[in-house]
């Protein structure tokens, strides 16, 4: 019986310890906004990771910074602008449309249009060749 109580105690003890790990932020609304915002931002140390995913110390600092800005009542745009002013547009996963990024935004459409023009030219040429081939075929 005493052994059984000891066993139960051993099972319960870790449960008590579990309560000690506190989340970094207390307000779930702030955490939700932080998560949404940091998924749109790039970590500069591990450049293929978002600020939300990265475990780099700088990413942790920046998340803390964003948390404080949210608590101060800044809007998402103001926070993004704050980071862009320090780290440049590179921190954004969605670059803004500017003269420098214009090719990035319209490039794919231009390639598609060029492809269609190429297709149209090829088809037209093929059509004009077709009757000759048939005539030759009849001659033979």
């Amino acid at each position: 019986m005493r052994l059984r109580i000891l066993f139960v105690l051993l099972l319960i003890l870790p449960l008590l310890a579990m309560g000690e790990a506190k989340p970094l932020g207390d307000d779930p609304a702030v955490e939700a906004r932080l998560k949404a915002l940091s998924q749109e931002l790039r970590c500069l140390v591990c450049q293929n990771q978002t600020l939300a995913d990265s475990a780099a110390p700088l990413a942790e600092d920046l998340r803390q910074e964003i948390r404080e800005k949210i608590a101060e009542g800044m809007s998402d745009k103001e926070i993004t602008d704050y980071l862009v002013a320090r780290y440049g547009n590179f921190v954004r996963y969605r670059p803004p449309v500017e003269s420098q990024t214009l090719l990035l935004w319209v490039g794919p459409s231009l390639l598609l249009i060029a492809g269609f023009i190429g297709l149209w030219l090829t088809l037209r040429r093929r059509n004009s060749l077709l009757p000759d081939d048939i005539e030759k075929g009849e001659d033979a």
């Binding site: 500069l44 600092d61 920046l62 320090r86 780290y87 440049g88």
Partner: peptide, 13 residues
């Protein structure tokens, strides 16, 4: 010590 000024200067590496 806490890297706050570093953030203002855009320090990342």
């Amino acid at each position: 010590r806490d890297g706050r000024v570093g953030i203002d200067y855009g320090v990342y590496g």
